[in-house]
């Protein structure tokens, strides 16, 4: 579904990604883990068009999307729940969700039943239903994270990119977020997940890539990686 080949990207003159190659099969949940500054967020940004890659290929389905503007990539069905949540603070929760479906509401994507999908989001995240009339800027961090994920899902995406959905959340909420991710996977949604909690990510993922200094250092089935003593020592903090 998503195929990235030799992706190179820079911030100004500093090269951050040195040729990333990875794949996300339809219906799979793939985790991208690695230490801070390894280039995880940058990889997602270069895929979704927030950052223009310098070279390499990004294929969504059969279409080449590398270098296209972010809005066009979104219209083709790639949803990106970005680092820092980036909800629209002066708009109510409900409008944030509606904007997630913007391409569907404006004819750029198959419309389907947007109202029913909003209802589905409220079922998936009951807190959002309680808060639906409230401005997104007044939500707690955890609620904003749920909103960011729900907003991305409103696209009815082919692929969903999730950037650190656990960031800044209490342990209990982190658990809740991972439970939600597992539920989305069960519903057949194709996902690429960037996480700092590598252990938890490997718990839910099918496949994982380890990023190190802008390069893929390791890849393999998540279950195998979880049990690999070398991986545990280097990325899972030994413990769990």
């Amino acid at each position: 579904m998503l195929k990235i080949d030799q992706l190179v990207a820079s911030y100004g003159k500093v090269r951050v990604l040195h040729g990333i190659t990875l794949q996300v099969k339809k219906g799979a949940l793939v985790a991208l883990i690695g230490s801070n500054g390894a280039g995880k967020t940058t990889t997602l940004r270069a895929i979704s068009g927030m950052l223009r890659p310098q070279s390499g290929s990004v294929q969504l389905g059969d279409a080449e999307i590398a270098g296209k503007p972010a809005y066009e990539i979104a219209r083709r069905g790639l949803a990106h729940s970005p680092e820092g949540r980036r909800v629209f603070p002066t708009l109510p929760v409900r409008d944030n969700l509606e904007l997630g479906a913007y391409p569907r509401l404006t004819g750029a994507r198959t419309k389907g039943d947007v109202a029913a999908d909003i209802e589905r989001m409220y079922e998936l995240f009951p807190r959002l239903r309680e808060r639906r009339g409230q401005l997104a800027g007044t939500l707690s961090g955890g609620e904003q994270q749920m909103l960011a994920m729900a907003r991305a899902l409103m696209l009815s995406p082919e692929v969903l990119l999730l950037d650190e959905p656990s960031m800044g959340l209490s342990p209990k909420l982190v658990e809740e977020v991972f439970a939600t991710i597992a539920r989305l996977k069960a519903a057949g949604i194709t996902m690429l997940l960037v996480e700092q909690f590598a252990a938890a990510a490997l718990e839910v993922a099918d496949f994982a890539y380890v990023l190190e200094n802008g390069k893929i250092a390791l890849s393999g089935e998540a279950a195998k990686m979880r049990d690999d003593p070398a991986v545990r020592a280097a990325y899972l903090g030994g413990g769990h």
């Binding site: 980036r86 629209f88 708009l91 904007l99 391409p103």
Partner: peptide, 18 residues
């Protein structure tokens, strides 16, 4: 709403397909 979203956060608005 797309106009307001753009005012709030231009990058995030692009991610919505705006």
């Amino acid at each position: 709403k797309a106009v307001v979203a753009t005012s709030n956060d231009r990058d995030a608005a692009q991610l919505m397909g705006i």
